[in-house]
Simulated scan of single mutants.
Amino acid sequence: MERALPYEWIPPEPGGPIHELHLWPHRSLPKRGFAGFIAGTFVLLLVPLYPALGSPVLWGLLPFLMGTLWLLYWAIQRSYRDGEVLEELRIWPDNVRLERHSRRDATQEWEANPHWVLVALHQTGGPVANYVTLRGAGREVEIGAFLSDDERVDLYGELTRYLPIRE
């Protein structure tokens, strides 16, 4: 079974780049699953309240249980917002451009001549295993740092079809 990768190659359009790649962080809990998880947690939090119905203990427990539910909701929503990252790699015959869009930071950009761009896979020594970088125009930039180790190896293989490999 082939796994779905959190990136895709966009078909070329007339006048656009000859190759375009979009990368994003993997989401193990989709939005629909998130709603079900919160609903299920709410139902489970009601279980200890059932015996307390009609007694003053209910009003002692209710704020803590609902506060727990709210905190869980807030934490997962924060995780979604922090994970809103998109990297776009565009390759033209005379230019390569990498843009990283993040909700929290300004857009980061890098450009170089594709003839001089080198793709490298650092199996060790980087901030993560199988660290993929692009080098050109006097800079070395990472690509797909939020991907898993195996996904970065797959990405490296696909990038080497379009850009030179650094030994």
Rank of each mutant, 00 (worst) to 15 (best):
Q123A: 04
F64R: 08
L86E: 07
L23Q: 05
V47I: 15
R104E: 01
L53P: 07
L86W: 02
E20R: 09
F64C: 09
L118K: 14
Q77W: 01
R100F: 00
H101V: 02
H115Q: 10
L62G: 11
L44W: 11
D105Q: 02
P93I: 06
L72E: 10
D105A: 00
W24L: 04
D94K: 11
P17V: 03
Y73K: 06
H26L: 11
G16I: 13
Y131K: 05
T133V: 10
H122Y: 07
M66G: 14
R81G: 08
G40I: 04
L61M: 13
F64H: 11
P93W: 00
S79Y: 13
V47W: 12
P127D: 00
H115D: 09
H22D: 07
G126Q: 10
W24Y: 11
G54E: 09
A112M: 02
P25C: 00
G16T: 13
L121S: 12
T68I: 12
G125M: 00
P17C: 02
I18P: 01
W110D: 03
R97L: 06
S102C: 00
W116I: 15
I18E: 01
A120R: 13
R78N: 09
V132F: 05
S79H: 15
T107K: 01
Y80D: 03
L58A: 11
R32I: 01
S28Q: 14
T124A: 06
G60S: 07
T41G: 12
W110S: 04
L89A: 08
V119T: 10
W24V: 01
P56V: 09
L58Y: 12
E88R: 03
I91C: 04
R103W: 06
Y73W: 07
V119E: 07
S28A: 12
N130R: 13
A75V: 09
Y80L: 01
N113F: 12
K31G: 04
G40S: 08
W70Q: 08
H19L: 01
L71Q: 14
P127L: 00
V128C: 02
I76V: 12
P17E: 01
L98A: 04
N113P: 07
T41A: 11
V132S: 08
R27W: 10
P48M: 12
S55Y: 14
L134R: 11
P114I: 08
Y80I: 02
L45S: 09
A39K: 10
G83S: 10
W116C: 14
I76S: 11
T124H: 06
F34L: 03
M66A: 15
V57W: 15
R90L: 03
D105W: 00
M66P: 13
A75L: 11
